[in-house]
Each structure stands twice: as structure tokens, then as C-alpha cells.
Design a protein around this nucleic acid. Structure first.
Lengths: 338, 338
DNA sequence: TTGTATGCGTTATCAT
DNA sequence: ATGATAACGCATACAA
């Protein structure tokens, strides 16, 4: 590979001049510029990014951490992150953490080694103290979730209120025995959704039944397995609220396999509105999040942080929407009993 | 951030010695080593990756290019890539190309700028000449697809034979009017699948009908839209073979919306066996690819390439499996007519 | 407008 | 076993 020295020699100038024609900052004589350009062309010169990075102390790389790259919801968030990053000249390194604290920390360590300029966390399961301390010295943005009482910049919806909203939707359909399949309980966002569920029940004067609250891991399989469990208890629920669409889709299959129908026998609702949700049968009632926008805005915030520019707003909360489709309907049991 | 100089000063040694205790290559007096370790600890020293990279001319970054990060099939391939990379101490930069040649080239250019050590291409839509030339000077591995007549290392299944196999499955069920929803026609792998489909028809002495071959873009939506089109022609097909599972799932919804049933009225089969395929109703008949293994093996090959180690085998072809589920059944029309 | 020289933080090659 | 010093390839302050 040709270096800046080779170009300089061929164009009969100093390396400083070559550097100048590249940056375009300082003025350069058109003729010399021409010579340099030709030399670069002839040598097929490509500036060495490594050297540039070292010199400028920047990597132009940002890291995006997701619990699982296969998760379609996060895929779309990543897409927003990527597009935003590309526009600003950054590249995105994606890390799947599998909910593993150590993996998360390993990725975060890349910042300390100057291998990345900033990081976007889509799921917080690190010790809070560690996170706060880390964010104090490195650019960090939380996407999809919000850390109450913290001033780490974040972009998310109001998960608690959204969970309340969809639970109330079920309540309004006459359901009173509503199960909740939550996500990993150490994830803040899942706690928020659980809280929203509880609040809605409480507001309707319904006692919560611990048997009806089960913990999954976001996957199709866990939705399936947990639902089988729910179908084996004494008084089975008339509705299931899963903390994400995949678990909801898993739940629907379990119900079908059990010989019951959705929504006739049991209503099922999810969360996230991944693309598949409108294609399954029955189409899934869920909460639509602006995933792409979450990604884009969080990366824009991160880049400001990296550039030490001021943030207009530190905690951004975006709108979510309840999307009612076919998987939720009036509670038959309530109708018969009423 | 503390540098190696700070550590050296505090430990009262030269930077060379500090470097030595880090690498562990040369022998160091246990006492001095102890002092250095303590200094590093006290200063919370983290070696600067940028400087290391410049010095060693390595980035420890590999790029993985996918047509679309949201595509669940590629997500799993990426997962394999990531795991393999991590194990070898590499980080993975993921690029979504959206089938855009320029984006692809932009990412490939990162290699020329020494910003990455190698690249995995999961979908070839670049000019072949460019690709060959590029692969001659930079580490490149093709994952999921195989470039006939080229010696660029690759890991894939035999797409042609797999497509033949699943088409024959439909033929064996009595279907003769089989539509094919292909992927983007400029993608090699889609051409291979189309070929397999054609070969199967041909072997059964069936004339192909151009009306039954339509081009999609891998998405749920395109599967849906194209199927609506297929349902509007004169003699509608009795079976549809989609080039991937998402389009197949889109097709199933279109058929439902049209008032017909799968597989009773129309059989539908896909390709890839993404996780969702066993959860939709009816569960999808498809070709199972070892996605994770494709990812892992391709990254292992790439790393060998990067390290200039010899490859045992340049073109790796993995086994695929026909998975028969509920979405394909005997052709009713054939039964009635026969 | 252009050139010289220094530094970015390492690793590696010499000496000692 | 350890230290001094030269790269790695570029950007930039300072001179000219």
C-alpha cells in the first residue's frame, strides 16, 4: 500500500502538502494540488485509517449492544442506528450480549481501549453504579429504555404507561384473569412493563395472582413453554399479555396446540409490533414502538455527546401506539357469566 | 487516560519493560514485573488500541455484509460469525447494504483504508470482476452463496439442489402448477434457486409458465403483494415456492385474505427455516440451512485468510434438509381430476 | 503557499 | 533483564 510519503515523493512536494490537499483546510496552489491528485490517483493511494485515528484520537466507530441480534425488534432499532451513524460518517459495531453482564462489560471496555468512540445500550442489565460511573467518563446513550433517576441520556417510549394501556385494553374487553409473560426480570424495561400491568390491574380493583406472572426470555420458545404452563393451572387465564411479540406468537401456538382458539378462548397481546405480528394468524394486538426513530435519535444524541456538543434534551420519550388487531376480543367467560 | 509512559515513570522502568510485562514474551524480573503491575493498577491503565493497531497494522475488526439486518435468516448467520470472531479476538462490524452496490463498495473500501482486516459477503451483487480483483488483494469470504467458477473461498449449501429438492416435494404431492417467488434476480443465490426450480419442473416434463415466476425482495410484504398478483391470473397455481420463508409467510397471508386455505387450496413452501416458520399456522414446509454453522465456518476461514494460514478447503458446501410441515399437502385439484 | 519537525501510544530492534 | 530509540502513517504548529 502506498503511503503519504510515496505520494509526496511522486508529486515532488512534502507530506504536509499532501495532507493539506486531502483535508482541504489550508489553501493549496491549484497546480500543486493537481500534481498531488494525480500522484494519488496513479498510486491508488488510500490514507491509512489507523494512522488517522491514532493522530486524531478518534475511531469513528460506535458500538451498539443488543441482548440478541436475532430479535427482530432490536434489528430495526439497529437499522436506525446504522443509518444515522453512516450519515455522520460513523461505523457501527454490533454486539450481542445474550443478557450476559460480562460480555456487556467486555464491549464497554473497548471504549477504554480507544477502539470505539461511544456506545448505545439497548438493554440495561449492568450494575447501575458501574453504568453511571462509566457514563460519566464515556459517551453512552440508552436506547429503548430509561433509567429512572439517572441523567444518562436516553431515548425510549414510556414502557410503563404503554403496558398499562394494553392491559387496560384487555380489561375493557371484560378480561379479569390476565396473565403476564414478562421478559428477563433483571432488565429495567421489563420491570417497567410489569409495573404497568400491575398498575392497570390495581386500578380496576383486581387482585394480582402470582401464578399468572411468569418470566420468559423474549424468545418464541419461552413464550410457548410458559403458556403451556399457564394452561395447566387450575383456572386458566382468559387473556395473556406477553412482554414482546415473539413470546406472544409462541403463546398463540401453545394455545392452538392445546386445542383452544385465539381470541375466542384466550386473547393474546404482545409488545413491540414487529413486522411479523401483522402477518401471523390471528394478527397480533400489540404496542407499536417507533423503533427506527429510537435508533436514529439515540445515535444522533450519542454523536453529539462524542463531539461534546450540548444536548437539547437528555431524556427523550417517544410516542407509542396501541394497535388492535385480531388476537384480542371480548372475554367469552365474562359474557357467559354476566 | 494514562499512557505507557505514565506507567513506566511510576514504576521507574522504561516503556519497553512495561510493554514486555504486557506481552509476556520476553522475560522480566518478577520484582520489576510486580512494580509495573502495581503501577498499571494504580493508574487504571488501559493500553491504547489505536496505537497498537497502527503499530501492528491490524484492526482486529472484520466486516460482515448482509442485504438487510432485519432479515432473520442473516441474523443467525451473523450470530455464528460473531461468536466465531469473538473467540478469536475479533470484533464484527455489520453492514446492511440494502442490495445497494455502492454501499457494498463503501464498506469494502474500509479494508483499503486499513479500518478492517477482512470481510464476509453474504450476498453477491457486486460486479464479478471487481469482486475477484478485490479478493485477490484482501481477505474475503463468501457466506451463504457460492460463485461458480471462482476461487474465492465460500461456505454455503447447494442452493440449486435444495431448490430442486423442495420443488420435487411439491411435484410428488401432485402439483403441476407451481409458482416461484424468487428473490432479487441479480443475487447469485436467487438465480441458483430459480435454476433448481426450473430443473425440477423440466425433469418432470412440465413446461414452465413465465407468469408463475415472479421476483420479490425477500420481504413479507413482497411475498404478500406478489401472491395477490398470482391469485388474480387465470389459472391460479396450486402451489407456491417462495425463495425465502418471509415471502412464504407473506404468501400465506395473501391466500388467507383471498379466502382460500393453506394447504387445502394452495400449498406454500419457503426456504431457510427461520425460527418463525415453525410457529406460524400452518407451520411452514421449508429447507433448513445450517445458518449458524455457515457463519462460524466462514469467519474461521476468513481469519485463516487474514493470518495467511492455508485453507484446508476453499469451497465448503454444507448439508441442507427438507423440513416438511403443515403448509404443503397433496394437490386437491390433481386428486379431483385424476 | 509550502516545508520541517514533532507527536499520537504502541511494539520491536538494538544495545548494554 | 533492561533501556534507548526507531518505526507505524498521518496531522499540524511553526518556520520560511
Amino acid at each position: 500500500m502506498a503511503t503519504i510519503h510515496d505520494v509526496a515523493k511522486l508529486a515532488k512536494v512534502s507530506i504536509a502538502t499532501v495532507s493539506r490537499v486531502m483535508s482541504g483546510a489550508d489553501p493549496v496552489n491549484p497546480k500543486t494540488q493537481q500534481r498531488v491528485l494525480e500522484a494519488m490517483e496513479k498510486l491508488n493511494y488510500r490514507p491509512n485509517g489507523l494512522a488517522r485515528n491514532l493522530r486524531s484520537q478518534k475511531t469513528n466507530v460506535i458500538i451498539a449492544l443488543v441482548p440478541d441480534i436475532k430479535n427482530p425488534f432490536f434489528s430495526e432499532v439497529i437499522r436506525g442506528i446504522e443509518d444515522g451513524a453512516r450519515q455522520a460518517g460513523f461505523n457501527v459495531l454490533i454486539g450481542s450480549t445474550d443478557g450476559d453482564r460480562d460480555k456487556t462489560k467486555e464491549y464497554m471496555a473497548l471504549l477504554d481501549e480507544s477502539r470505539a468512540d461511544g456506545i448505545i445500550l439497548t438493554t440495561t442489565q449492568t450494575d447501575r453504579a458501574f453504568l453511571e460511573e462509566f457514563a460519566a467518563r464515556s459517551p453512552v446513550v440508552l436506547a429503548c429504555e430509561y433509567l429512572p433517576g439517572s441523567d444518562i441520556p436516553s431515548v425510549s417510549i414510556d414502557n410503563e404507561s404503554a403496558a398499562r394501556k394494553i392491559t387496560k385494553h384487555l380489561l375493557s374487553l371484560g378480561h379479569t384473569r390476565i396473565a403476564h409473560i414478562m421478559g428477563p426480570s433483571n432488565v429495567i424495561l421489563c420491570q417497567a412493563r410489569l409495573n404497568g400491568y400491575r398498575q392497570a390491574l390495581h386500578q380496576h380493583g383486581i387482585m394480582e395472582d402470582e401464578l399468572l406472572i411468569q418470566e420468559g426470555d423474549y424468545s418464541l420458545d419461552s413464550g410457548y413453554l410458559i403458556t403451556r404452563k399457564l394452561l395447566s393451572i387450575n383456572r386458566i387465564p382468559t387473556a395473556i399479555f406477553a412482554a414482546n411479540d415473539e413470546m406472544a406468537i409462541g403463546a398463540m401456538k401453545a394455545i392452538r396446540d392445546f386445542g383452544l382458539r385465539v381470541p375466542h378462548d384466550i386473547s393474546v397481546v404482545g409488545f413491540d409490533d414487529i413486522h411479523f405480528s401483522s402477518y401471523v394468524s390471528p394478527a397480533l394486538t400489540t404496542i407499536q414502538q417507533p423503533r427506527y426513530e429510537i435508533g436514529q435519535r439515540s445515535v444522533n444524541m450519542l454523536i453529539k455527546l462524542i463531539r461534546s456538543e450540548p444536548l437539547d434534551q437528555s431524556q427523550v420519550v417517544l410516542e407509542d401506539t396501541l394497535v388492535v388487531r385480531e388476537s384480542s376480543a371480548a372475554c367469552q367467560r365474562a359474557i357467559q357469566e354476566g
